[in-house]
Design a protein around this nucleic acid. Structure first.
Length: 698
DNA sequence: GTTAGGG
DNA sequence: CCCTAAC
């Protein structure tokens, strides 16, 4: 399986020098980069229109949201806007983020990046805006949880990599409020105490309190003004219908639109699959508008179905062959039918609570505040099932953690074991730093480590459902202030996104803003869930801080080893790791495939691999003619060695005999020249002779 | 874009 | 499977 990851760039991420030399194919793509950019406009427009529609819809459909009142359109700030729509939040890059929940939005790809000028004037704008379209289908579960859409605007202008929490200072009051509400109060206080002066990365004035930001972004104001941050209740959720409509109308990178899709792919292709976009290098200031539309999914089950419907995942291949899979539907050729994509939503396979009890809890689990979810960048969110024991101990069972931004392709034929290994591998590779655990209670982060569970209200049985854990990257690697917990200021909300943005090299890399949701369902749904039993006792919570780490890739709950391994590794090295991981997943040829190959070669001969591909593997997008050629090579080799030396799935001797026969035949007949002459099929005469059989062209 | 062959 | 050279 292949997992794509974005490179994680450490704090040094932006250093161009660190960017590994792209493969030729990639380099080639780079050449076309400009063209792509030009074309991006279309994409951008699409996105913009989508966003606008979403907003409109939202305002129309949800009376609850005041935010949009009066704002029928989406306005984008002058600067570049980065717009991402995901079911999950992810990239946080943004300075100004708005989350619209988009259910089932079709996603171009996380990686897709579009550079554009600001929405209105992007043609004119000098800045290379980046429009990121991370459209992915939303998980229904997510939707459910979030029920309400949150709109959140995070303002921030700078791209500074490790922006500090202070960045919020620049944000609109409302925004701050929102964040505060979301965050632990303690955080707020600290931030205030520190004042604006803090961190190096602080971007002051980017979002003047009173200011322009608002003007430019109508929906800037957080929907939830309530300090307590009300998590959107499910009731609030925007009707799915509206979302759907939007989606349909816009068709952004929808499966139906291959062309567009292709475009996205191309854009994203500029970088190798998981490779971070070079644009990262650009330190331009970007403003992002991220919108997400959160909805609650009715049921976990729904979620699964949703997934089942097929996730769209664009794959980026060097070669012309597309390995995209539409898991279940195969609706698009671009998609590989077998691949599983785990994006934010991740693979639905995630752990589902097994115990009835948990299930029950999950259903109940009430809302997690998605809104603040936007703020949180934590990479992993763990949900847990918990029950209180009679002895006053709070026993928690963490069922799963969600790992954001992890893409994995798994052949249908892959074994569960290989899947596990792959996930582990991916996670390990992705981990950029130490992991820390964050505690979410009712969607809020519990930052005060000194408080007791009971003091925090976590002890009551009824509340346990609302308890969630997040695995957050520990930015030890990053700038001190960022990493340090001392800096609670790092605003979970605003700052983080900005940081991410800057860091994010690849769309994929973007850190999604995890929904803070503690909802079990959410976790369950998580794409990749790492299930684990975990006894929780304490927790810290600074999601934001970590997030900045772009690397905040995923966190793994796993043993320390992972942490160690990753934590110490410099960002650059990590990147390399990731690249390695990008290698296409190995997909052993099945006997039937071998047979088809042999058959085709018998007919066409060697040296006409493209024809072989077309004849026998036209529908097997994951098999390139190079693959076929290589397979033939290995088959010939296999046929020559003793059975004891052969590995893997045994190939019937009969086929190997045919391989040898055909190989011998075509070697003698100059396959290329004779291919045309032989429309017939090679047959082995004297099959008994096995290898020595004589091939005859009929 | 294909082929062929080394890695 | 990847990467390159050569066409």
């Amino acid at each position: 399986m292949v997992f794509k990851k974005r490179l994680d760039y450490g704090f040094d991420a932006f250093s161009v020098s660190n960017v590994p030399r792209a493969p030729r194919s990639i380099r080639r793509r780079d050449r076309t980069k400009r063209t792509v950019d030009d074309n991006q406009i279309c994409a951008f427009e699409l996105l913009a229109s989508l966003a606008g529609k979403l907003l409109e819809e939202k305002s129309e459909s949800s009376a609850a949201s005041n935010v949009f009142e009066g704002h029928g359109h989406v306005s984008i700030g002058k600067d570049v806007v980065k717009h991402e729509i995901e079911y999950d939040d992810k990239p946080l890059k943004t300075e100004c983020v708005e989350h619209l929940s988009c259910k089932e939005s079709v996603v171009a790809s996380d990686w897709t990046t579009i550079n554009i000028d600001n929405l209105k004037e992007f043609k004119h704008s000098e800045n290379n805006a980046i429009l990121e379209c991370a459209l992915t289908k939303m998980q229904s579960s997510y939707s459910e949880q979030t029920k309400s859409d949150l709109k959140f605007a995070i303002c921030k202008d700078n791209v500074a990599y490790g922006s500090s929490p202070d960045d919020l200072e620049g944000c609109s009051p409302n925004f701050r409020e929102l964040c505060d509400g979301i965050c632990d109060n303690g955080v707020k206080r600290e931030r205030e105490a520190k004042g604006l002066k803090s961190g190096p990365f602080t971007v002051a004035n980017n979002c003047p309190l009173k200011d322009p930001l608002h003007l430019s972004m109508p929906f800037l104001a957080p929907i939830n003004t309530d300090k307590d941050v009300k998590l959107p209740s499910r009731n609030d959720s925007v009707p799915n219908a509206s979302f759907s409509r939007h989606r349909n109308n816009i068709k952004l990178g929808s499966r139906d639109d291959d062309e567009k899709f292709s475009r996205f792919n191309k854009l994203s292709n500029r970088f190798k699959a998981s490779r971070p976009p070079t644009r990262i290098e650009d330190q331009r200031i970007r403003k992002f508008l991220t919108s997400k539309y959160w909805k609650e999914a009715p049921k976990l089950r729904d979620f699964e179905n949703f997934r089942a419907d097929g996730e769209i995942k664009p794959l980026h291949r060097k070669r012309k062959t597309y390995y995209n899979y539409d898991t279940l539907h195969k609706r698009r050729k671009l998609f590989d039918d077998s691949s599983i994509v785990t994006s934010d939503g991740g693979i639905g396979s995630g752990s589902v609570s097994n115990s009835p009890e948990k299930a029950k809890n999950e259903n109940k689990s009430s809302s997690v505040a998605m809104s603040h979810g936007a703020c949180e960048i934590s990479s992993l969110t763990g949900q847990l099932a918990s029950h209180k024991s009679s002895d006053s101990h709070v026993k928690l069972n963490i069922k799963s953690f969600r790992i954001p931004e992890l893409y994995i392709e798994v052949p249908e034929s892959a074994t569960v074991g290989s899947l596990k290994r792959t996930v582990m591998e991916a996670v390990t590779a992705l981990l950029g730093g130490r992991i820390r655990v964050g505690v979410l209670f009712h969607g809020k982060k519990v930052r005060d480590d000194s408080r007791t569970l009971s003091q925090s209200g976590i002890s009551s049985e009824d509340n346990l459902d609302a308890l969630g854990f997040t695995l957050e990257p520990n930015l030890s690697i990053g700038p001190p202030h960022l990493c340090s917990e001392d800096h609670p200021l790092l605003l979970p909300c605003g700052a983080a996104p900005a940081n991410l943005t800057s860091t994010r090299t690849t769309p994929a890399m973007d850190i999604k803003i995890p929904n803070a949701t503690a909802d079990p369902p959410l976790l369950t749904n998580s794409e990749k869930a790492m299930a684990s039993n975990y006894k929780h006792t304490s927790s810290q919570t600074d999601i934001l801080t970590d997030q900045k780490l772009s690397e905040s890739r995923a966190l793994v709950l796993v043993p320390a080893m992972n942490v160690e391994a990753l934590s110490v590794v410099p960002a650059n090295q990590k990147i390399r790791k990731s690249e390695l991981a990008q290698r296409r997943t190995r997909r052993p040829f099945s006997v039937s495939e071998v047979e088809a190959l042999v058959q085709a070669v018998e007919e066409l001969g060697t040296g006409r691999w493209r024809d072989v591909k077309l004849r026998a593997f036209e529908n097997a997008d994951h098999r390139t003619y190079v693959d076929l050629k290589d397979k033939w090579k290995t088959l010939v080799h296999t046929a020559k060695i003793s059975p004891q030396q052969r590995r893997g799935e045994p190939v019937p001797q009969e086929l190997l005999d045919r391989v040898m026969t055909a190989h011998a035949y075509w070697s003698q007949h100059q396959a290329k020249q004779q291919g045309k002459h032989h429309t017939g099929t090679l047959r082995i005469i004297d099959s008994q002779a096995g290898r020595n059989g004589v091939a005859v062209a009929i």
